[in-house]
């Protein structure tokens, strides 16, 4: 980051645009899923927009991100074409995986987005692999890996974090702590209050911030990314946030109270940002209205593109899996 960071304050409206775009996109995907227009599972990141925007916004094109199933927004902020993303989510032939899979099970290599699998935390060792390559080749690039607090109980997380620590890899572990691993509350998931506490076991720093505060996430990322690019090793950033929906669209989230949801909705990351715009003296009402129109048009267009895209025919399911076809 370094230079460029100062520019952030001039880009207040762009940041707002991304927050709104992610929300509009997420919201539309959920609605389309309810209408039966999206096959497979949908895992909404509604409420967690500030984490993905804050973590990805200042990255360079050559940096890698490793989003998980709830990080649709990370794709958008990293510069992935919304049309193609929607086609991917709908399982269309024009999607990144050519219809072989749906939702976020695909990467966009030229944008530095590495796809995930359904096995949570399994992309963390892969991020370390990418970071090790950056280190060996002396490239000033970083790998940013996303995961939830539930994934931090998995052995993959432990092995990745330990390896990153020893080799001082340029990797940033971004934990989106939304307090529930599907239905398992954090208290049943770990005996510590902060996932960031785990970093001490690997000899690097763990930082806790509000995942609903865009600037808090960006500041934490600035520090971590600078450190990683300098070759001073990894960092764990824990962003406390909340998902408004259930784990997936088929989860009614009956394990949590309405009051808890309301409490978190009152800390909404986008409303918070709108308050910031207003306080800073912008014509907030105008920006809000204009941005709303803009993002709606982008998502409308994406849906139109995706829905008019062809379905996969079938036989291509067998191709592009192994470099040399079996």
């Amino acid at each position: 980051m370094g230079e460029g960071w100062e520019r952030v304050m001039d880009q207040d409206t762009e940041l707002y645009y991304y927050l709104r775009l992610v929300r509009e996109f997420e919201d539309r995907v959920s609605k389309l899923h309810h209408q039966g227009r999206i096959p497979g599972g949908v895992y909404s990141g509604l409420g967690q927009e500030a984490v993905v925007v804050g973590a990805v916004y200042r990255l360079k094109p050559e940096d890698f991100i490793f989003p998980l199933h709830r990080d649709l927004g990370a794709f958008l902020v990293k510069g992935v074409d919304p049309n193609l993303l929607m086609a991917q989510i709908m399982g269309k032939k024009t999607g990144f995986s050519g219809g072989r899979d749906s939702f976020l099970h695909a990467g966009v290599l030229d944008k530095g987005v590495i796809g995930s699998t359904s096995m949570l935390a399994s992309s963390l060792p892969v991020a370390c692999g990418a970071a090790l390559k950056f280190k060996i080749k002396k490239e000033p690039r970083v790998a940013v890996a996303f995961f939830g607090e539930g994934a931090s109980s998995r052995g993959d997380f432990h092995e990745a974090a330990n390896f990153a620590g020893i080799h001082k890899l340029p990797v940033i572990f971004v934990c989106e702590n939304n307090f529930y691993a599907f239905s398992t509350p954090q208290s049943m998931q770990m005996a510590v209050e902060d996932v960031a506490d785990r970093a001490a076991g690997y000899g690097f720093h763990g930082h806790v911030c509000s995942g609903n505060d865009l600037f808090a996430v960006m500041r934490a990322m600035e520090h971590a990314v600078n450190q990683a690019r300098r070759g001073d090793g990894p960092e764990l950033i824990e962003c406390k946030t909340y998902r408004y929906s259930g784990h997936s669209e088929h989860d009614m989230a009956s394990y949590r109270t309405k009051e808890e949801l309301i409490e978190w909705e009152s800390r909404d990351p986008i409303q918070r940002y709108e308050f910031f715009l207003e306080k800073k003296g912008y014509d907030a009402a105008k920006i809000i209205a204009e941005t709303g129109g803009k993002v709606k048009a982008v998502v409308d267009e994406a849906v139109k593109f995706a829905e008019s895209s062809p379905e996969p025919e079938g036989p291509e399911a067998m191709t592009e899996i192994y470099a040399t076809p079996v």
């Binding site: 998995r154 052995g155 997380f157 432990h158 092995e159």
Partner: peptide
């Protein structure tokens, strides 16, 4: 202690 199973 570097094994995932230790962590779990």
């Amino acid at each position: 202690t570097s094994e995932g199973s230790f962590h779990e």
